[in-house]
C-alpha cells in the first residue's frame, strides 16, 4: 500500500512542501514577484469570487425564507445565513473558485514553463526558480485566499441583507446585531484560520503539478487538470479536518 502511486505522489508532494518551508524563508526574497502574484491570485480573483458569493448569499436567503416564515422565525434568517456563510460557504466557495481559477493557471503556467525550459532558463539567469516561481505563488495563495474569503463573506452577507429587504424590511444595524449576537470568536477565527490552509493547498498543489510536469504539451494540460481536481478535493478534506479540530477544541 505504501508503494502505490498515490502514496508516492503524496510523499513527493510532502517533500515539495518541505522544500517550500526550507527555501521559502531564506533570502533572497522575491518581494516584487510576490506582489505580482498576490495581485494575480488575489485581486484578479475578486470579481469571480465576489459574484459567486453574492449569488450564494442571495439564493440562500430567498430559499430559507419560506421555511422560516412557516416557523415564524424570519428574524433568524440573518443568523442562519450569516453562520452558514462565515463558517462554511464563504471559505468553501472561495477555495473552490480560486482552485478552479488559480490552481489551474498555476499548473498550466509552471507546466508550460517547465516544458519549454523557461524554468531552466531562470536558473541559468541567476535566479532560483523555486523561490521565484513556487515560493511566491504558494505564499501569495496562502495570504490571498483568506483575504478573498473575508471579502466574499462580506459580499455574501450584503447579498443576504439585500435578499431580506426584497421581501421584508430590516435595517443594517438590526441585521449586524442579529448576526453578531450569535457569533463568537470560536466560530469566526477557525473559519478564517482554515482558509490559510486552503490557500496553501491550492498553491502547493498547483505548483507541484506544474513544476513537475512531464515533457510535452500534453503534460501541461494534465498538470492543470490534476491541479484543479486535487486542490478542490483537498479543500473538502481540509474542511473536514477543520471541523474535527474545532470540535476537539470545543469551538463548536
Amino acid at each position: 500500500m505504501f508503494n502505490g502511486p498515490l502514496f508516492t505522489e503524496f510523499r513527493a508532494m510532502a517533500g515539495f512542501a518541505g522544500r517550500f518551508l526550507r527555501e521559502g524563508f531564506r533570502p533572497r526574497y522575491e518581494w516584487l514577484e510576490l506582489a505580482n502574484q498576490c495581485y494575480a491570485i488575489g485581486y484578479q480573483s475578486l470579481p469571480l469570487v465576489g459574484i459567486t458569493s453574492f449569488i450564494m448569499g442571495l439564493v440562500l436567503t430567498l430559499r430559507l425564507r419560506p421555511t422560516m416564515v412557516q416557523f415564524g422565525a424570519t428574524s433568524w434568517i440573518p443568523v442562519m445565513v450569516g453562520l452558514t456563510i462565515i463558517q462554511e460557504l464563504g471559505p468553501i466557495i472561495t477555495g473552490l473558485m480560486v482552485a478552479g481559477k488559480v490552481g489551474s493557471s498555476i499548473g498550466a503556467e509552471l507546466g508550460s514553463m517547465r516544458v519549454s525550459e523557461q524554468i531552466d532558463a531562470m536558473e541559468v539567469s541567476g535566479t532560483n526558480p523555486f523561490k521565484y516561481l513556487v515560493v511566491t505563488r504558494i505564499l501569495a495563495a496562502t495570504l490571498m485566499v483568506p483575504i478573498l474569503t473575508l471579502l466574499a463573506d462580506a459580499i455574501g452577507l450584503g447579498a443576504c441583507y439585500l435578499g431580506i429587504n426584497l421581501q421584508g424590511v430590516t435595517s443594517v444595524a438590526l441585521f449586524t446585531n442579529n448576526i453578531l449576537g450569535r457569533l463568537t470568536f470560536g466560530e469566526v477565527l477557525p473559519a478564517v484560520g482554515k482558509t490559510f490552509f486552503f490557500g496553501f493547498a491550492i498553491g502547493l498543489i498547483g505548483c507541484y503539478k506544474g513544476y513537475n510536469a512531464d515533457n510535452g504539451t500534453e503534460g501541461v494540460g494534465a498538470a492543470a487538470n490534476s491541479a484543479v481536481v486535487l486542490a478542490s478535493l483537498m479543500i473538502f478534506l481540509l474542511d473536514l479536518v477543520a471541523v474535527g479540530v474545532s470540535t476537539a477544541f470545543g469551538f463548536i
Binding site: Y39, G42, I147
Partner: peptide, 12 residues
Amino acid sequence: RHIRLVLFVLAG
C-alpha cells in the same frame, strides 16, 4: 497594480 493590491488587502 500595487495600489490596487494594497487596497484589496486593506479591505479584507
